[in-house]
Design a protein around this nucleic acid. Structure first.
Lengths: 220, 220
DNA sequence: CCAAAAGTGTTACTCGTACACCCATGT
DNA sequence: ACATGGGTGTACGAGTAACACTTTTGG
């Protein structure tokens, strides 16, 4: 720890620190998973936590969340949405921190998580096996999954969990993984195909079964 | 202005100020109206603005919004809900302020607005006659009315605009005032009466017409 | 030929919306 | 009697949910 005199920022009244914390979801082996990091400093040193960081002077909160996500995962988020604030005075034992919580969805094959400045390890956890988390991040994750389920009726949200080109079965698997329960195949397909959000491609996905039509998002 | 040396609060990194701003709606003479104050300090001295204020060290954001509302209107909000954050770095010309925007609904007959410490005047404005506002408060008000319309399908929200005992016509007037358009009387009544949220009272409201049944919220 | 996943339609129910007339009171 | 707002029922269309079998490929 440095003992040099360092620049400080002074205010007439106490100011909280403001951070963006990001719940990043992706599908891993067919299950919904969340990206966590281990803290390498006190408090909660060594515990798992959501990635996130403090807002800078010259950026708004959306930019902060996007930057932190990029720093942690190397991926520019296709879908990043604010869903709640967490502001209990004692939620951080060191100083007061107000967290703006964001929800992000990624295609897991596009991510190579790398340990960054604030994290000594990065890992994916299935929703059924989330470890104890630092701060109130457990509460934030619960709120995030609830928000995600609410948003999922919008196909534009769902598309962010699958590759650019996908089969309807892949899309349905993603839907079911988030909701945590199976859904009817015919209803799902009828609903999606009755929108104008899908475009057939000329390609088929082959396997030890009947080939599946590959779709992509319609350009509007 | 005092020239005494005053206590300051120092931080290693810049911290934004955090405020709650509150869009308080009520019905006035059958129209939706919003409560505004005039600023009595720079910047935007003399302009109309949303009531609000900075979060204190020992309160969370909900408590901050409730306290500010109480200070401005003398009323404890029956319905107070966070709906968005505003965090552009330059939205306040003095120092960086992140605003957490709240929506409140009041019964206008229970309010006696009084000028407080930050305000030199307080007034209600019909939605069709909102003056130019300080900061980005015009944007906040637009977002607030959109959120309010989204929430209005929930009768629990709507009830906050009418007295404790009310007729169905009063309730429908409140609904129409927020939406800004008329709605069908039979559909409105069928919808409300098919819920278990209403209780008939034994009283009737009298006037130069057929008396109206007075309802109250069911206690669950 | 067998396993595995893709693909396909219809029915019932619920919910929202459109719509017009009679009723009870005060003046 | 008349003006004023209170009160009532039904029919249609849209969207959602339940439900089982055939098709096409690879191995």
């Amino acid at each position: 720890l440095s003992t040099h005199k360092v620049r400080t920022y002074g205010y007439r009244y106490p100011h909280p620190a403001v951070a963006a914390d990001i719940a990043i979801f992706a599908l891993r082996e067919g299950e919904l998973a969340i990206l966590l990091i281990t803290r390498k400093e006190e408090p909660f040193c060594g515990m798992w936590a959501l990635p996130g960081g403090f807002v800078r002077e010259d950026e708004n909160l959306d930019a902060c969340a996007r930057r932190e996500l990029l720093e942690e995962t190397g991926v520019d988020a296709p879908m990043l949405r604010q869903f709640a604030n967490f502001s209990e005075p004692e939620r951080d034992p060191r100083e007061r921190v107000i967290s703006v919580a964001y929800l992000a969805l990624l295609q897991s094959d596009r991510i190579k998580p790398q340990a960054g400045t604030d994290a000594s390890a990065v890992g994916w956890f299935r929703m059924s096996a989330i470890p104890p988390l630092a701060y109130d991040h457990g509460t934030i994750v619960e709120a995030a999954i609830r928000s995600l389920r609410d948003l999922l009726d919008d196909p534009d949200i769902l598309f962010n969990l699958v590759p650019e080109r996908f089969t309807l079965s892949q899309l349905q698997s993603a839907y079911e993984a988030v909701l945590g329960r199976p859904t009817d195949k015919r209803n799902f397909r009828n609903r999606l195909l009755s929108t104008d959000l899908l475009r057939e491609t000329k390609d088929l996905e082959r396997g030890a079964h009947r080939p599946a039509m590959i779709y992509e998002r319609a350009r509007h």
